[in-house]
Design a protein around this nucleic acid. Structure first.
Lengths: 354, 354
DNA sequence: GTGAAAGCGCTAACAA
DNA sequence: TTGTTAGCGCTTTCAC
């Protein structure tokens, strides 16, 4: 059974004083006689009084609340982002309201709308597409401070993100140096994430520049729990590929497992590079080569940016794009077998081996 | 710059009608003439009006908001719990306010207090210690519906949890059957998690029953980034142990890695069993044997329970304790080398813990 | 069918 | 120093 929490009115009544006096005492503002002070404090204690933020918020039109929308918490990258943002917000006396969009633009804009209705003071979001986000338009219309995370900066929204294209290009360079010519880009929910697309584009561009074959786009339509089977099929159908760049580490690890299931050796038969730098990449054998990013820094930075705007201070500087990632070597990346190196320009026609 | 969002008053003014009428139209309640209906709708559209939940909440003394407190999102188990709870809450038109306690009782009760002040309608929490939680007392005092997750049930708080003791006993049985006699229990933050303690106790008890040596408690005091070093030291100092039960999968994976670093073969030289059943356990070679739990079901169940109480319906039944986990075989668990099986009864003397 | 007014919990301006 | 009052955005009687 819900108990009606005592209000400041109850306190005032019990202390036999006016509401305003109670408010002053409880807030430690204004001047009050020692006697009434004590009476009020006693009354509050006896009643177990706690302020209701609702009344306060309505009156101050500020909720000390920040909305946060990320695609999913199942991805440790976003879990870290949220955790860091939450910690930072807390430190400033703000609460975080969370919503997951599940990589769905519709859910995403609905979430933003709801958060806005709740009068959040600020917003931290990762949208699926910055260029066409109904949610962001709403935000603009309302003039609520908002920072993007892992999205490209966009018309007045500061973004804490990694330079996806540059990072992808770095991966291409690694592959190239080792002698890979036929690579694939592995992605889940490709159409639903502009991050993925940027990585692919950056990768493809660099491959072209480096004189490698255009990377094959290995796209997976998520089928609950079918991941490994799908991956195996995909790998089996693309035997000419000697190196795979996965759009995230989890996928990369899954690909390693699938490859092993097909009897392929890593990295001799197939090199794999991930993206994100989650710690489990270091737990597997061989270690996963990957692009390391710093999700906590992103989350914290985004929170600071929003908080700064709220406080009227100047927001923290965002890191230089080239510093937003680093390439981490790992046993999953090595030179292709000699036989594969010069797979030939005809590689597109007959699958080299079956 | 923050824009003052249009209020229902603005709409009424623009539609040249009373506030009450605007409210009725916008809420689709009560009867209104077609003409005013259109005027109001038009005004609202032109103004880009959206209800403010603040006023509504104050008025209805309900926020359609649920507070959620978990130790950390870095642990995928809790990330899943939160994600599932959030999804379920959303489905019912509720929002989730998140707080992480960082395994700190102080932060935990502060978080609960703040959430309560925000007038959350319900609460979903994992506390560090159900028997001594200031936060839970507050909750009781306020009579707010609250479900526990991964905690033991407690004086009126329904808990969605796994039977830690039974699960741990099952692990002991597996070890025993394979011929292990000297095992260790590996835990991080042991003192800060009653879950860990229950697992250890259940494990120790079962070991005793099965005639095995008492498990060595291998406790790690988290040192940012030092995990592997500490693990290696711990393993090196406990060579007589043939099997390790880790209090969570992440730790188990780290232990596998550390063991490999010491040149130990898994499972011949050391068997390792985890707890949780996170998917990366299946990505490593050999696969991690573990206790599989269902965090999403826990989060969803907890949310349903709270939501049901809020709706005055009967809450969903919680699963039978024996169904809350299942043991998953994996290559990380095997029989010890013959030479190790009868490693000797002196194992208890050298100070295994300090 | 419609609008005025009270009230949800709180703070701030103004009187006393 | 203290109390009264208006008002934050909204819903809901209750007259009209």
């Amino acid at each position: 059974m819900k108990i009606r929490p005592p209000t400041i009115k109850d306190v005032a009544e019990r202390a036999a004083c006016g509401i305003a006096t109670a408010s002053r005492v409880l807030n430690g503002r204004g001047s009050t006689s020692e006697k009434t002070r004590e009476k009020v404090l006693a009354a509050a204690a006896e009643l177990g009084f706690e302020f209701s933020d609702l009344g306060r918020s309505l009156q101050s039109s500020t909720t000390r609340t920040i909305g946060c929308v990320v695609p999913s918490l199942a991805n440790p990258v976003f879990a870290d982002v949220v955790q860091a943002a939450q910690a930072e917000a807390n430190r400033a006396g703000y609460q975080l309201i969370l919503a997951c969009s599940d990589y769905d633009a519709e859910l995403e804009s609905r979430a933003i709308r709801t958060l806005l209705a709740k009068q959040v003071d600020g917003l931290i979001v990762t949208v699926s597409n910055v260029d066409d986000s109904e949610g962001l338009q709403q935000v603009t219309a309302r003039g609520v401070p908002c920072a993007l995370v892992y999205n490209r900066p966009c018309e007045g929204f500061p973004a804490w993100t990694v330079d996806n294209r540059a990072a992808a290009a770095a991966v291409a360079r690694e592959f190239s140096q080792l002698g890979h010519r036929h690579t694939g880009f592995l992605a889940l929910e490709f159409g639903r994430s502009d991050r993925s697309r940027e990585r692919f584009e950056g990768f493809a561009e660099a491959c072209a520049t480096l004189g490698m074959a255009p990377p094959v786009l290995l796209e997976i339509a998520e089928q609950e729990g079918q991941l490994l089977e799908l991956l195996r099929a995909l790998l089996a159908a693309n035997r000419d590929v000697t190196g795979i760049f996965a759009s995230n580490d989890y996928l990369a690890l899954a690909a390693m497992k699938a490859a092993r299931g097909l009897g392929m050796r890593i990295p001799q038969d197939l090199s794999i590079v991930g993206f994100d730098g989650i710690s489990t990449g270091l737990m597997v054998e061989p270690n996963l080569a990957t692009v390391v990013t710093d999700p906590r820094a992103m989350g914290e930075g985004a929170a600071r940016t929003v908080l700064a705007r709220l406080a009227g201070k100047t927001p923290p500087a965002r890191p230089d794009p080239s510093r937003t990632f680093s390439f981490r070597q790992g046993g999953s990346l090595g030179p292709p077998l000699p036989g594969n190196t010069d797979g030939g320009e005809a590689a597109t026609s007959p699958p080299s081996r079956q």
